[in-house]
């Protein structure tokens, strides 16, 4: 499917289902920033419906800023962006979002299922009264919890959960509203290697099963390599998008970050990008 714009890929058995003709995200010469400061600019890309894209880049490159733009929490400084065929709007029910996790206090009494429930109707006014609608809501929450296999610990207070358990429940919270686009900010952070692979596989399986488009921010591309279709690297002056093999090369990344970047590959096919963090955190430090 790649980045082919507007062309409907023929649905063959085994390939991810294609739900919409239009791409999930279309950005044209997009620039983002806060106040007068620009974080990145010149971003032109398309993300096809049903695609799973890893969003990468050094610390401070503006990966979360991209998600904030798509969520309608931040206005573009320049350019245009369409999300699911519309300009971004806050509270779009077709988007499921898991923000980057700050450590929670260990005494929060809210249970995992309560957290998932908020994803279903937490944005509605009023107080729900017991009744048929409540039971139906309870079933949908239970389904979402089951989809991420979180039943054993969903009844525990979130403060007592491990990072991986909390991430799964937050994924269930994002899924319970039945979105078509999933935006995940660093869902693999604070997980060990084995759990990183498990989480990536879970997201991939669910996305395929439910026909979701996924943008997943990550610090390290390696746990994502088995599951993503393409990667999106964010630089100050634009983005590089394509398959990992196309983008994670010294030429492409050096051009994007205007600095000498090297890519090393070990015997197991893992990629190591060298020189990115230094150059971006100290752009003129030489």
């Amino acid at each position: 499917m790649g980045g082919s714009s507007g062309i409907l890929a023929p649905a063959s058995p085994g390939s991810p289902p294609v739900h919409a003709v239009e791409p999930a995200v279309v950005a044209r010469d997009l620039a983002a920033g806060y106040g007068t400061e620009t974080v990145w600019a010149g971003a032109t890309f398309e993300i096809g419906a049903g695609e799973m894209v890893g969003v990468l880049g050094p610390n401070g490159a503006g990966k979360s800023t991209l998600l904030r733009l798509l969520l309608g929490l931040l206005r573009p400084q320049r350019g245009t962006v369409q999300v699911l065929g519309r300009p971004p709007m806050r509270g779009n029910p077709d988007i499921g979002y898991v923000p980057q996790r700050r450590p929670t206090t260990d005494e929060t009494s809210i249970r995992g299922v309560d957290l998932v429930r908020l994803g279903l109707d937490g944005h509605r006014w009023g107080t729900p009264l017991p009744g048929r609608r409540q039971r139906a809501a309870g079933r949908r929450v239970a389904d979402a919890v089951a989809a991420v296999a979180a039943q054993p610990y969903a009844g525990r207070p979130v403060g007592q959960l491990s990072g991986g358990e909390l991430q799964r429940l937050l994924l269930a919270q994002a899924l319970v509203g039945e979105p078509t686009l999933l935006l995940l900010d660093e869902p693999l952070a604070s997980l060990d290697l084995r759990h990183q692979a498990g989480m990536a596989a879970l997201v991939s399986d669910l996305a395929r099963e439910l026909g979701l488009t996924v943008l997943l921010i990550a610090h390290d591309v390696n746990p994502l390599l088995p599951v993503i279709d393409r990667v999106l690297y964010i630089g100050r002056g634009g983005v590089a998008i394509g398959t990992p093999g196309e983008v994670i090369t010294p030429e492409v990344l050096s051009r994007l970050y205007e600095a000498p970047v090297e890519v090393l590959e070990d015997s197991r096919g893992r990629l190591f990008v060298v020189g990115l963090e230094d150059e971006v955190s100290h752009p003129h430090g030489y």
Binding site: G91, Y97, V98, P99, G119, G122
Partner: peptide, 15 residues
């Protein structure tokens, strides 16, 4: 409740 538990997601959901 949503905003008290999870301000970021609540804001994204239009709260």
């Amino acid at each position: 409740l949503f905003a008290s538990v999870d301000e970021d997601v609540a804001a994204a959901r239009g709260v």
